[in-house]
Design a protein around this nucleic acid. Sequence first.
DNA 1: TGCTGCGGGTACG
DNA 2: CGTACCCGCAGCA
Length: 457
Amino acid sequence: MSRAEEREDSDCVCSVGMKFTWDINDPKLPQDMKQFDSFQEWTDGYVRFIYSAEDKNAQRHLSGWAMRNTNNHNCQILKKSCLGVVICSRGCSLPDGSRLQLRPAICDKARQKQQKKLCPSCNATLELLPCRGHSGYPVTNFWRVDGKAIFFQAKGVHDHPRPESKSETEARRSSVKRRVNSPPFTPKRRLIETQVSYRRTHSSVPGLGCSCVCVAPQALGPALLSCVDSSDRISFIEPSFPQHYPAFQSPEPYYNPHNSLGDVSSGIQKPSNPRLYMGRPGYEFQGYLTSPSYPMTSDLCDPRVAPVLGSSSSSTPSSGSLSTSSSFDPQGKPPAGWKDLLKSSTPYGDNHHYYGADYPCRYPSNAPGSPAALQTIITTTTKVSPTRGSDTLRFITVLKSWPASSSYSTEVKVMEEPGGVIKSLSFQPEPLQTKTERADGCDYRYTYPNTYRYEDY
DNA sequence: TGCTGCGGGTACG
DNA sequence: CGTACCCGCAGCA
């Protein structure tokens, strides 16, 4: 291992997979891996990971996202594409303020049946919000086994809320079965609420998905699960988009095999979950953003970051049309439909208008009287320099604004793709918290290196 | 019953 | 040719 690689080892932002320049289609992939990424359940963005062939989750090609098999006529490479998320067509808020975000059934027939069901909260129809995060097409994941490693590559940025994780869906199913023979209310309720709070807090944590912050949930997850029957967990999850910002891995029982194996190194998960977000056009910019003088960890003090921040604050568009992200497609050739999406302020002429002007109707604010739940996403893509061939180094700036009533997350992502290091940086105002949220006693200062009050904006 | 992977096939650019 | 997507099938839980 070279000196440079050794140095990279200390960089918790960089995953093993991203240290190497490879593509899933390469005839020869990196060999003799001495180190593997720990499994990432919620990958997002153009990322690569290299898992150990022993990793059960990698072997199963698991993902938190609902990924279905896609035939790419290549038996070496398993390709999966994202199905999106099933939501209430009214976007109603559930009693606890969350929104229904079901995991689409993988099987086509099962999914059709699923969509015929009604929202458990308001009896409205359910709707499948498809994923269009990869140049208008669903995000795709590629899996390839090679030697002692399982190579994972993801293309696209999920442009929809997270569905339930697979284990959550399974747990709910078994729960529904069991409820037939058991009373509807159990004393577990309080613990359930505690866990929901946990999810709410941490699913809002922005993309410092690094490692340094992953100790707590791993310690916490099993502890919680030991007292909360996972099958009784709430079936609906995080209010809409704040879910995009979990730094933590879900404490799903299947999720962290390393822990149970006593893998010390996994206590601090190496890879981050670098994500970028491509906003669908049509947002009304609320103009909250400035360049805060947030502290940065050394890992995040990448000189490349600063200009991005500067540009982000100066790239405030005056209209609702934020179509500056047209070059997301690695090939630079979005399909015609996508071009239309970029031009249109109502990108989804069909029923996919959740991100359009009527978004607040679909996703009403959780707090009565608060501003409509407008989101703002600005994406700027700056071509800096080619890294190899036609690959380009891209700086992506993504800003999101949220009403004060919800978790406000702002992220600045720096992405080098497809061959390089991904760095991500994020900051957010102090999220709303309940007293139970940090009852685990974990110190999240490392999780929230940059805490801002909403007024600061 | 649903998940998963495979593979034949079509459509499109 | 690459990509997306549809379909059916088989194995499995």
